[in-house]
Design a binder for these strands. Structure first.
Lengths: 254, 254
DNA sequence: ACAAAAAGTTAGTCATACCTAAAATACATC
DNA sequence: GATGTATTTTAGGTATGACTAACTTTTTGT
């Protein structure tokens, strides 16, 4: 929410590349950037100077390149747009991974914030809504024939209804115990019920960890200390204390 | 399917603007283009020269601007991308018209063909599938609370099931008469059953008027001669003979 | 018909974003 | 520690795409 500067598509690409190279290796060499973006070496030098002027990278001639705080923030923002688009293409539009990735790469620079948020919300809605869940999304692609496959449609909806009823019965029995975020296994998803005040840093709230939000647990470190999650497209790393204050409802059983 | 040339985003904007201005008035003056795109007059002159070099516009100094055949094709392509995006944002993502339009304007230059087709297919799927119809899309936006609103979800699906069953009963009774395209009222939608060979020009087939395709009737001229339709984002104008050869199933009652 | 206004073009500038060729620097190895 | 190679930068070039200022052509009003 702090960055507002207007970066060109090209500079965003450089930032993104630098971020990824740094994530893989320790620091980025101009050569690596050039190879990744398929541009010549002098082009990289030029871009680095522009980025340095905007205080987004730490750059001195003949030295390794790192991102400044501002630069990392901007890079994460680009990457978030990229990932949100890619995931939407893959999960909702049933596009193949690599095709989706290339498309996201092209479109990530021009998508307005409002639309991005809607992409996220829509993907979540599809995931959560029993009427439009994963089964439904799977049905997209073989558009059932309007009249001949009417029976399929009926079966499809009837089954969805059955599942909701079953889940309701189970829910009534099990009384849904209070679950902590740390109890969600990696890859699992859950919905936030409550975030204990005080324990959560404002950063977490800002990124969208609020009651009602959907969380995907990405990785839990051995001792449960850094818990990596994804919320609204943002990757977050939570300390144990922070995670302990978050009550959730598991969402796996869909 | 004939155009392949790589046009810059800027030149696409110019083509789009020229097309729209010509549609409103008879021909485009550089001044109109400049006002519409909010650029200076010399910028327009420069762009027109580039477009003329690419044989996309007919341009001579101090003369009015018109599009060549190739230019009109390219312009329609840009506009199709724009409209597909906008409609998806409005109809599927529930974004407001003007916001959607602005977003489409930005993104129309970078969307790959594959993704565009998926946007169209997805919007059609949502429209046709009884499980994910207009009622379902309307539900997007107030993501029902996971556990508390379980009852709503159940009701929603049960209602959808009821509607499918009802439609099935009606369908069985009414025996679905053979409907001609010309009998669909403006604004109505239908699905193509059969396209009489010979009568249909290859242009129509190429644009996607094939059995199974969804058609939206846009306008029917007084004597039923030019029938304007939209298929897969393409605007087509059909002659009476062409339209007569197209059997459809109406899709209004959803 | 002709002067004023409007529209359009030319000329020259600037910034981005690429490129190639050549020079400078860093490193790696003997 | 010298030297060769790989990396990086500088220098200089091209194309797009925008701008302002100044000039030319067309249109319009009297």
């Amino acid at each position: 929410m702090t960055t507002a500067e207007t970066l060109t598509a090209s500079l965003e690409d450089y930032l993104e590349a630098i971020f990824h190279i740094i994530a893989e290796k320790r620091a980025a060499r101009p050569k690596d950037i050039a190879r990744r973006l398929k541009v010549s070496n002098p082009s990289v030098t030029g871009a680095l100077r522009l980025l340095a002027k905007k205080k987004l990278v730490n750059y001195a001639p003949y030295d390794l390149v790192t991102l400044t705080g501002k630069g990392e923030e901007a890079a994460r923002d680009v990457i978030r747009r990229h990932e949100v688009l890619r995931d939407f293409f893959v999960k909702v539009l049933a596009v193949e991974q690599d095709v989706a990735d290339k498309a996201a790469c092209k479109m990530e620079h021009s998508i307005p914030g409002v639309i991005l948020e809607r992409f996220i919300q829509f993907a979540e809605f599809v995931e959560v809504c029993p009427r439009g869940g994963s089964k439904w999304i799977a049905g997209f692609g073989y558009h059932c024939d309007y009249d001949s496959a009417m029976e399929n449609c009926e079966k499809c909806i009837a089954q969805a209804l059955e599942e909701v009823k079953k889940k309701k019965r189970q829910g009534g029995k099990k009384k849904m115990p209070v679950t902590k975020l740390k109890d969600i296994p990696p890859g699992g998803k859950c919905k936030v019920n409550r975030v204990a005040a005080g324990k959560a840093s404002s950063r977490i709230i800002e990124m969208g960890v609020v009651p009602g939000a959907l969380i995907e647990v990405e990785k839990i470190a051995p001792l449960g200390d850094p818990i990596d999650i994804k919320v609204k497209g943002y990757h977050l790393s939570l300390r144990k204390e922070e995670a302990d204050g978050i009550d959730v409802t598991p969402l796996n059983a869909r």
